[in-house]
Amino acid sequence: MKKSGQTASLVGKTTLLLVAVIVVGLTTTGLLAGSIDRRQPPAPSTSEDERLYLSGSTARRMSLAFNGLAADWYWMRSLQYVGRKLLMVPQDVVLDDLGELNLKLLAPLLDTATTLDPSFMEPYEYAALVLPSIDVNEAIRITNKGISANPNSWRLYQHLGYIYWQQKDYETASQTYAEGATIPGAPNWMEAMSARMAAEGGSRELAREIYQRMYAQASEDTVREMARRRLLQLDSMDQRDALKHILALFQERVGRCPSSWKELERALYSMKWSVDVNGAPLDPSRTPYVLNTDECDVRLAPNSVIPHR
């Protein structure tokens, strides 16, 4: 009885010792790994932009039956790639204006994702919206590849039409919307959009309709946010036109530019314009406009979330 008690005690001590070795060992290896990492030279900033090891077609062959999962991986990598680059810039940029971020890997990533899974629509949408400011030819090529693989998807024609519209090629944009409108299941507004594109390609109202459609249909939050901000920008453009008109009337009446918004208080009040405590009119994001007294002009405040271009 006493012997078995001693054996149990020994087993207990051994177990405790082994657990202690595991805990201490793991802690030590963790600390060592951290120390080794700190001694490593920092990775060059260009390493993230190194070319992909595999082309889309090779990745498709190598993925066996797992091409859908591999496509998801490349899609998430695209989002992370853009997200990391966005974190590196101090100012607020809009998704369709990322040309200065040097996103040269985005086109191959989206191309690989769509080669692995040609029915995966979101990468096509992302390519149509984000890529034109980086590489418009790639944006057109990837969207056309999507149309070849999914000839019944009218939304891809909508994306392609949007690319041409952004490039101010209103005739090709109109033709693209018209082609998309012939696809069974395409909404009636595609045909109307084709006609409007041909007649009033560069108008603000058409731009508003394009972004309203995009906002309503976007499956990705960042795309919806981009459309929302572009709509705010269009509203702000209308507001700035109205403010410029008020400034012009004041200048005509008084013979000089107002020195502050306070001087326009009555005019703004009569137009039921929202103003801040200093009497400055607020833009659609509730940030006060800046009065440029030198040029007698109105500008967006630098901290406004409304896109400046």
Binding site: G68, Q80, Y126
Partner: peptide, 21 residues
């Protein structure tokens, strides 16, 4: 959080791929 609203597609891809693997 990572997929840009594609969690349904990724769950099917991941689940069925894991099933096969």
């Amino acid at each position: 959080e990572l997929s840009g609203g594609q969690e349904r597609k990724i769950i099917v891809d991941l689940g069925l791929s894991a099933m096969l693997l």
